[in-house]
Design a protein around this nucleic acid. Structure first.
Length: 1020
RNA sequence: GCCGAAGUGGCGUAAUUGGUAAACGCGCUGCGUUCAGGACGCAGUGAGGGCAACCUCGUAAGGGUUCAACUCCCUUCUUCGGCACCA
């Protein structure tokens, strides 16, 4: 009796497979191709835990099955190795991230290889390999060429702990996705990728692909496409009014004309009667004494400040008894100065009187540290304050002020019910339209809103707030005069940052209108409202009323008509924003751009790629938020590729989404030195081959660049279904437009797997100490057992809690398979089992029928289950068959088919048994002596290169079936009958049945329901 | 708040899509084999009642549709995901 020694068997076959390269995909083979893909792992320092391999095993089952079905399968792997954990580790230890990455991926590789996954290791890639990121940089240059990569000053989400800028999508509830620190806003020059240019296609083409519904939903939610209209509202009280007589007011004034006139007199008076301290300081500051020009008692907004240097926007204030009134409003005053871009230094009277030298020194020092400020021309002194922090792309800006405010709405049909307008506090026209009476309230409100963090602002529990601007607009539908408000419930990142308030038909507007007592006007009567039902606000469609000539029209139809009537513009708006593509970090792909003093920004010539990441001593990001690369002067200082003059390299690097946005393309041609991947290979691997298993029956070979297709099946984690997928779809479509890839979409089919959780149903993590290392499991139970268990433990797409206790079941199953092998392998004579029992021996041929039947049912069920990723029930079906084979006599041919069904799940033991039973000319002993036993069947090959068994439909049919007999829906008996027996036959049999007879005795039979081959229900 | 998925033995879960609820596995109980052990074998294992054949109840709770409901509909509760003022 041969013992099952998993260690020996698994090691042996892994070596043989590798040596023979049986899992290598063949480029341009005449066989139909199949491309199955998993998300390539990030090789972390913790090594693999048992959760990692679940998707690899799942797709391995798919890939192995496809090979047996005759496909040339590409199932590749690589390392997504740029990223923060490695960089943080480098910062902590001072080790080169390259060394750390190598070490980590070596561990991952060893661990993954020990599981017998059929990856094509000859195509292994690594995003941190210059040979790889050369092409990441190359693709970036194509974006740059087409104007889709650009630099913009942006308010970015800044994580003070990780010291990097975060993309919007990396901010979760106002906190950094990875470390949980509250995110700050900072203004920075950033590289951007114009993903918004592809928003519509990214949205619409989802119809073409086979993704799980929730994945499509995630994509759609992120892009958020709204069809609506842009409508202009005329403002009838634009402010400030320009002064009537030019020249009356000096050009350096810093308030609107109305305030200027009011305050001018007072300022003159104050200038004439300074305090002692003011007089003393003015002696030091006046007349460009320190190369800076100061003004005294100057009007700014609605305040008079003591001294101001307008070229540096610095205000000097001396606190004395003079300004009691203003002192009370200090907070408001400072806020307003801040928003206007002024810095304020305050001194006490005594300081000036007693130590004037130190006061002057401090002022000069401050002045030196400040940048030159632009003296604003008349009438524009308050404008544009918010523009620099504008998060929208230029095309989405509100435009120059021409007396109109543009709003975006999806409900133009409700415009007759618009009773006010609301601007977001960030709207660039806020100051232009605000009347001077309201100016200080508005600035106050805007300042407060800006100081709220995103979370506070989005907090829905809180009451909406707002402030009236003093201005009015004309509703273009009915020419009514409606007030214009500012409120931070209007988002600064969507639409035109201005909305029309329709309280009767929008819940948010309703809330706001109620609070500020704004009129509520019903213009739609709901068609789906029940008779007599009324709601304070109604958001559905219906019939228009109070809408002039549109009264009685259906709201859907009215939308277009009204847009025409009021001169609006149909418009599709997206939530999706352009992608912030720079990181001020070391461990990423350098952005291949050079800044020349003369020529400006110059792309690195393609022949100079890759721009290799230089080695540095210190990986710490700088506090100023610049990349550690800025300090590597040798690397930074280069000659301009155009003029040869002095130039500097870009020091920003790419985010870690970059390398993973196109890696699946590289697998098609991983060693190509001339292109990111050759067109022939891409076409072979990405477009559907003419094969029977093809989807949608599209078998025609289409010319390059016109194909549907992509990776056949891509499985990955739920956490990546939105962003990674969106980004790589964007890159792919861009490359498609350049005719560099043959298909419009990168992935034809996308599924996701559930996580394996540690004890207590929580994520496995080092800090919780609940990590299970697959090495230990493989050592004790074997890779096959681990694989079977991971497939068996629960539905593949659901999270499951790991239980080492339960693995034993999978191991027992594997051993049972082994035991049956021993039985089958020998001539049909009584064979002593371990434990002394004797296998039931049947005359050859007899009873084999039952096993055969079950086998064919199993072939069908397992084949179907694998396609639907129901691996758990596939395994349980195999267990049922094994139990039956263990009990009965089994023919060699049937056992072989069973092994083939099991092979995708347990590749080692099946290969071993396959090799043992299929070379009968060699005794087991003889085989063992061979260093490298012959692969597979006599004259054949490995079980993994054999042919997937087919089921015989005739054998699946049962000749005799059990039929349940119910009385009034309760099962009272079970009868055996010929399959396909008529209802009459069954009825006769049922009525003869003892217990049935008992129940129907003396009762009237009202109805008999018969479900063929299943049950009969007798109603009495 | 909105949307989605789910809730079944002590545990992981299954159920031909409206047709015998609990397959398969873990655990547990008994017996067997063994000097012993269990990663062995056999049998049992939803709850309650009965010596038994059998009977009653049972898929989060309640109600409904149906000859028949884990499955469909309504209400409520719980859990987990996603979105979260996107006009």
């Amino acid at each position: 009796m041969r013992e099952y020694d998993h260690k020996k068997i698994e090691k042996k076959w892994q070596e043989i497979w590798e040596k023979k390269g049986i899992y290598h995909a063949k480029d341009l083979s005449s066989k139909p191709k199949y491309y199955s893909l998993i998300e390539f792992p990030y090789p972390s320092g913790d090594g693999l835990h048992v959760g990692h391999p679940r998707p690899y095993i799942g797709m391995d089952v798919i890939s192995r099955t496809r090979r047996l079905q005759g496909f040339n399968v590409l199932y590749p792997i690589g390392w997504d190795a740029f990223g923060l954990p490695t960089e943080n580790y480098a910062i902590k230890t001072g080790l080169d991230p390259r060394v750390v990455t190598k070490k980590n991926s070596d561990t991952f590789r060893r661990q993954i290889k020990s599981l017998g996954i059929s990856f094509d290791w000859s195509r292994e890639i690594n995003t941190t390999d210059p040979k790889y990121y050369k092409w990441t940089q190359w693709i970036f240059l194509q974006f740059l060429k087409k104007g889709l990569a650009y630099k913009a000053k942006m308010t970015i989400n800044w994580c003070p702990k990780d010291k990097i800028g975060l993309a919007n999508e990396e901010v979760v509830n106002g906190c950094c996705e990875r470390c949980g620190t509250v995110v700050e806003q900072r203004e920075k020059e950033q590289w951007m990728l114009a993903i918004t240019k592809y928003a519509d296609r990214l949205y619409k083409d989802l119809d073409e692909v086979d993704y799980l519904p929730q994945i499509k939903l995630g994509q759609r939610n992120w892009i958020w496409r709204s069809e609506g209209a842009e409508i202009q509202f005329k403002i009838i009280h634009p402010s400030p009014t320009l002064p009537q007589e030019k020249g009356e007011i000096p050009g350096y004034h810093t308030t609107d004309p109305k305030n200027f006139r009011l305050l001018q007199e007072k300022a003159v008076e104050m200038r004439e009667n300074p305090t002692e301290a003011e007089r003393k300081l003015w002696q030091e500051l006046k007349g460009n004494k320190n190369n800076f020009h100061f003004r005294q008692q100057h009007i700014i907004n609605k305040f008079i400040v003591d001294f101001v240097c307008l070229s540096k926007n610095l205000i000097i204030e001396i606190d004395g008894d003079m300004h009691d009134l203003q002192k009370e409003k200090d907070a408001e005053r400072s806020d307003i100065f801040k928003i206007l871009g002024f810095e304020v230094i305050r001194f006490r009277n005594e300081e000036v009187l007693e130590n004037i030298d130190s006061v002057v020194k401090r002022i000069i020092k401050k002045l030196d540290s400040l940048n030159e400020a632009k003296v604003l021309p008349l009438g524009e002194d308050l404008g544009g304050v918010f523009d620099s922090t504008h998060p929208l792309t230029p095309s989405q800006r509100e435009g120059e002020f021409d007396g109109n405010i543009t709003v975006f709405t999806t409900r133009p049909d409700t415009i007759f019910g618009a009773t006010y307008l609301v601007l977001s506090p960030e709207h660039s026209l806020v100051e232009k339209i605000t009347t001077s009476e309201q100016m200080s309230y508005v600035i106050n409100y805007v300042t407060k809103s800006k100081n709220k963090n995103k979370q506070e602002r989005v907090n829905l529990e809180k009451e909406k707030t707002g402030v009236f601007t003093g201005a009015y607009a004309i509703n273009p539908s009915n020419k009514e005069k409606i007030p214009v408000w500012i409120a931070d419930y209007v988002l600064s990142t969507y639409g035109t940052r201005a909305i029309m308030g329709v309280p009767a038909h929008d819940e948010r507007d309703f809330e706001f209108a109620k609070k500020y007592k704004l009129p509520i006007k019903q213009v739609i009567t709901g068609a789906d409202l029940l008779e007599g039902e009324s709601k304070d606000f109604y958001e559905g469609g219906g019939v228009l009323s109070n809408s002039g000539k549109f009264d009685g029209m259906d709201s859907e139809k009215a939308k277009k008509e009204i847009i025409k009537f009021i001169g609006g513009k149909e418009k599709v708006t997206f939530k999706l924003r352009d992608w912030v593509f720079s990181r001020q970090r070391y461990w990423g792909e350098p952005i291949p751009v050079i800044h020349c003093e003369k020529c400006g920004m110059v792309p690195v010539p393609e022949k100079d790629l890759p721009v290799e990441l230089p080695k540095v001593k210190n990986y710490q990001p700088t506090d100023s938020g610049e990349s550690p690369l800025v300090n590597i002067t040798k690397w930074v200082n280069v000659k301009c590729p155009i003029c040869g003059g002095k130039a500097k390299r870009e020091t920003d690097t790419m985010p870690n989404w970059a390398g993973s946005s196109w890696y699946y393309l590289r697998y098609a041609d991983p060693k190509n030195k001339k292109e990111f991947a050759g067109k022939k290979n891409l076409k072979y691997w990405l477009t559907p081959p003419p094969s029977p298993l093809q989807r949608k029956g599209k078998s025609k070979v289409l010319p390059f660049g016109e194909d549907i297709g992509g990776v056949d099946w891509y499985n990955g984690g739920n956490e990546h279904t939105t962003l990674h997928l969106l980004y790589s779809r964007f890159w792919h479509k861009f490359l498609y437009d350049l005719k560099l890839v043959p298909t419009n979409e990168p992935y034809m089919k996308r599924t996701s797997h559930g996580m394996i959780l540690g004890e207590g149903g929580v994520k496995m993590s080092k800090s919780l100490g609940n990590v299970i290392n697959p090495d230990d499991i493989v050592k004790t139970y074997g890779a096959d057992t681990l694989r079977i268990y991971e497939m068996f433990m629960g539905p593949f797409d659901q999270s499951v809690v790991w239980s080492t206790e339960s693995i034993i079941g999978a191991r027992r199953f594997i051993e049972k398979v082994w035991r049956i092998g021993n039985k089958v392998n020998l001539p049909p004579t009584p064979f002593p089992r371990k434990g002394g029992r004797i296998t039931k021996v049947l005359p050859l041929g007899e009873d084999l029928g039952e096993v055969k039947k079950l086998l064919h049912k199993t072939i069908k069920k397992v084949s179907e289950d694998i396609e639907a990723m129901r691996f758990n029930t596939a395994v349980s079906t195999l267990m049922i068959l094994a139990n039956e084979m263990d009990r009965s006599e089994v023919s060699l041919a049937d056992y072989k088919k069973f092994l083939q069904l099991l092979a995708p799940f347990a590749p080692h033991i099946t290969e071993e048994l396959w090799s043992l039973i299929t070379s009968p000319q060699l005794s087991p002993k003889g085989r063992e002596k061979l260093k490298s036993p012959p692969l597979g069947e006599v004259g054949g090959g490995s079980i993994h290169l054999s042919t997937w068994p087919k089921w015989d439909a005739n054998l699946i049919k049962d000749e005799e079936v059990k039929i349940a007999v119910q009385l009034n829906g309760k099962v009272r008996a079970e009868i055996l009958a010929q399959a396909d027996a008529t209802e009459e036959d069954i009825k006769k049999k049922a009525f003869l049945n003892e217990s049935v007879a008992k129940y129907i005795a003396g009762k009237e039979i009202r109805k008999v329901i018969y479900i063929k081959n299943r049950l009969m229900n007798i109603v009495v």
